[in-house]
Nucleic acid binder design. Structure first.
Lengths: 177, 177
DNA sequence: CATATTGGCCGAATCTTATTCGGTCACAAG
DNA sequence: CTTGTGACCGAATAAGATTCGGCCAATATG
């Protein structure tokens, strides 16, 4: 592969408004990133080189930040999914807490508004492993308590979708209740 | 592309234990699914055709269920991320509630143990859109109330990792606290 | 108004990579 | 011991990615 080719990472800042073609391409690629440029072109009505050019730009500008294989948690022995709310004394966004990112069972770490400080999405082999992870979380200075929501079943889980609902249907009126 | 070629979807059931090569390949592909088979082979110590064979099997057996472009929420105008806990009267897993899956801002729907019935991960354009979505959730018969945790900042967010922590370091002993 | 300049598209090469195809080897069952 | 079976490899082939030159429209420029 040539150097200078496909250099992602440059011009991260550009956000030159996505047009209809870009949106469609994003939709198709989120669904299946293995499609050929020829097929993509056919779907959106462009030639393969034109699609290639656009996809390259989407990557360059960061609209697409990664192309990943999504794996089945069961296949890799991660049967337990849980969301852990962490209350901390003071400002929870400490390097120590972020340090738990080193464990591959931690998938997300967010600071949230509401009665908790941090929210974690974790996926472990079993409850034993969740316990091990929670123990490590409690080790972090400033952690007051945690509340874990163990997932019983997942009805849907998908990557960020490019589509946006522009018109929210009116809720049923109170009189109709 | 040939028919009969690359038919994923068959033999979903097979879970013939993943070996070290498979794990390494999964790790590499989760990180970047655009790598060539030659490069993958170099990394794990196999020839390109051998890698191809294994990756095909990983897809066939469902260990890899999708290859997706992961997109930057900001690029598609989805600035607001929130986790919504939904309390329902009775068993919340109704078709009506699952019906909200049709909105592209809904990324996850789980049934959870704990004081709530369902947990949603949603990503919207702004708080206005979150309101619109919540209105639709309240429309579902049986929904008692919701609690939303709005994300202020995301410190980490990544796909399912194949690695597993086998030995959890011992927590600090109480005497050391 | 005439004319550069730019950006984006296309078809036609070209080159890289995926995929297929024997053939070999190790291991296990008969 | 012989026969399968599964997985590997190198080489050959096919498919797809990437590059290239030219074209065209929209927009600046003199």
């Amino acid at each position: 592969m040539n150097l200078e080719t496909d250099d992602v990472r440059q011009n991260e800042g550009r956000t030159r408004e996505l047009d209809a073609f870009d949106r469609k391409l994003l939709g198709l690629l989120v669904e299946d990133a293995t499609r050929s440029y020829a097929e993509l072109g056919e779907q959106v009505g462009l030639s393969a080189p034109a699609v290639h050019e656009r996809v390259k730009r989407l990557k360059r500008t960061g609209a697409i930040h990664q192309t990943a294989a999504l794996i089945n948690p069961i296949a890799v022995q991660k049967t337990l999914l849980a969301f852990v709310h962490v209350d901390t004394a003071g400002w929870g966004k400490t390097p120590e807490l972020l340090g738990i990112a080193k464990y591959p069972e931690v998938e997300e770490i967010h600071s949230v508004a509401g009665d908790t400080c941090m929210l974690l999405k974790v996926r472990t082999k079993d409850s034993r492993a969740l316990e091990g992870l929670l123990a490590r979380i409690y080790d972090v200075p400033g952690v007051i308590k945690t509340r874990s929501y163990v997932v019983l079943s997942t009805h849907m889980e998908r990557p960020v979708q490019p589509a946006i609902t522009t018109e929210w249907p009116a809720p049923r009126l109170p009189s109709q209740r």
